[in-house]
Write a protein that binds this DNA or RNA. Structure first.
Lengths: 348, 348
DNA sequence: TTGAAAGCGCTAACAC
DNA sequence: GTGTTAGCGCTTTCAA
């Protein structure tokens, strides 16, 4: 009468959540729990007759393995943790969706955390995930420097891959797009359409993508004779920042020929505000974004943008998480090439 | 030499993920593991001096409790499972974000699953969550009838709350908005603005919200003399469905005065396509949505819509999950009143 | 092939 | 107030 279930067998079942354990299955099948375990897992040969009996007993009792116990015993939870700066950002949403899908395909689950763009919260969430013995961690560190300790700590105890953004130093594997290439394609496109004075509205360079895209922008413009930087507006990767930048640009009375945005959220806000101000896109000014979130095709005019191959990024990340932990293998960086999607916001 | 950590103490530490256990802390502090546990948890009085020593030992060893072991022992994982039809849908994204936030506030984590609008996948995900001994489950069942078994199974073994959609029968608690009220407000508003012929573009009534909103629409129109149903287009809650409906409506050459959409995604697609076809909103036709997702304020024209108080819904859901399991308390239904947000898509 | 038993890391009786 | 000990449910030696 040791287990909760045998209490149930006495007719004193306290609640329906009193589930059958492997003990119950073994008893019912008339074998030891070891044999029951072997039969159920199929990882070891068992007499066919015995296997059948165990199988049937399990079904009759509606047996469900307790994965918590399996995890404690087997040192693997089959849970992967994920920390993103903001679940609500459509780009991160896409990534979360893709990672969850890939994990589900291999019987793993996703423990999702939102750091709310705050390194302190992020550090706490990472710690909580580690205490939960996650098998791996996917993180988009919100700050290139302030997030270093959290990422380091994660990497010390569990396979960790940074996605999209990364922290300073070669701390862990990283998967993302080649921002330089993406920005280059966008600037080349804008220049080809005749833009001479190009503005950049992006994120403040606390996160790596914000910085890298800005720098790539500067280089891309500098590399093109006749093209100059009309303005830079740095804030966060939000719709609101886009709106603000649009108002300022418009108020300055000196619109550039084209505006490249650090991400689509910014571009969406910018487009909205430009329209409200009566500025015509692309006639008066061309606008391009970065990410290709779902809504990019729905703005008016539809947004030209640099598409991130999200499913591929997710697959690479999950693959790295599972990769054989080659002893002291140096961190790798996988930069997938993005493609420019040309829509009406940059062409008549 | 029983624990992995004592292996480490022998200098044979195999990997840095060889974490200190409570045994190590106890040994270092010179107390028993029970005392260490008590000191660390603070749930029982301990001599101040001893408490200090344990605390220090824990810090020095960088001790982290193993929550898997705590869960196995304590019958609580502090993990809540969540299953939604589609992570990518902005409305569900908002809900996930809000639930995650509320859970984090009470030291719990969110195990997120996407059923991809498929009852079979949904059932598998629910089962996986139950095997993981989640403390509770929040689910938006994709189908009012096909999802019944999965929801029932969940409810049998763990506190479960349905959010937004629900299945037939009083199976579990439910939290959502009062769809009837929301649709009524929208129809009243459209009628007030002079609409006589009103169309409905919504979801096929497999999910509960789709059905309820459609029925509420029929009733609301019927209750208003002079107002009639111009058309019904039922599909899924997607942008694409909205686009398709707009094309059909336009091709029919007989536009209604106003269109109420089953959700904002549909409305966004509809607005896009109407604009492409040269139909003016709201001059030629008014359009209203449901949910008030972030982009509703960013469409052109901005979308009038029924706002769901997402943070409140999430808070209620989390509260119900934690509510004392009054024995055989009948399931409750919490229907929060939504508010109509009037924007330019229905008024000049 | 099968069973007995150890033990994953932790908490809570139960003694002292 | 502190230590000893019995498990939580499972998998995997190690013997038989």
């Amino acid at each position: 009468m040791r287990t909760r279930s045998s209490r149930g067998a006495l007719g004193k079942r306290l609640s329906s959540s009193d589930r059958a354990t492997i003990h119950d299955v073994a008893r019912r099948a008339g074998v030891s729990i070891a044999t029951a375990s072997r039969a159920l897992s199929g990882r070891r040969r068992v007499t066919p007759d015995v296997a059948d009996r165990v199988q049937r007993a399990a079904e009759e009792l509606d047996y469900r393995p307790n994965t918590v116990a399996q995890a404690l015993r087997g040192q693997s939870t089959r849970i992967v943790g994920m920390v993103v700066p903001g679940i609500g950002d459509p780009f991160f949403t896409q990534i979360v969706e893709a990672v969850e899908h890939d994990l589900a395909g291999s019987g793993r689950e996703l423990l999702l955390c939102d750091s709310r763009h705050d390194p302190a919260i992020e550090a706490r969430r990472v710690r909580a995930l580690l205490e939960r013995q996650v098998d791996g961690l996917v993180i988009t560190p919100c700050d290139a420097t302030a997030s270093v300790p959290a990422v380091r700590e994660a990497a010390r105890s569990v396979p960790t891959v940074q996605m999209d953004r990364y922290v300073e130093g070669d701390v862990t594997d990283w998967v993302g797009v080649d921002d330089e290439s993406g920005v280059n394609q966008a600037v080349a496109h804008l220049a080809d359409r005749g833009a001479r004075r190009v503005a950049f509205v992006g994120g403040a360079p606390a996160g790596s993508t914000a910085r890298v895209r800005l720098e790539a922008f500067e280089r891309a413009v500098a590399a093109r004779p006749g093209v100059t930087v009309a303005a830079r507006a740095l804030g966060d990767f939000s719709v609101e920042h886009g709106r603000r930048a649009a108002r300022e640009l418009h108020a300055s009375g000196d619109l550039p020929d084209a505006i490249l945005c650090g991400n689509d959220q910014i571009a969406v806000g910018l487009l909205r505000e430009l329209r409200a101000a009566g500025v015509r896109v692309p006639a008066d000014v061309s606008v391009a974004g970065f990410d290709d979130i779902g809504y990019a095709a729905l703005t008016d005019p539809p947004l030209t943008t640099v598409r991130q191959p999200v499913p591929q990024l997710a697959t690479e990340a999950v693959r790295l998480l599972t990769a054989p932990p080659a002893p002291a293998r140096p961190p790798c960086r996988i930069a997938v090439s993005p493609t420019l999607v040309i829509r009406a916001s940059t062409s008549p």
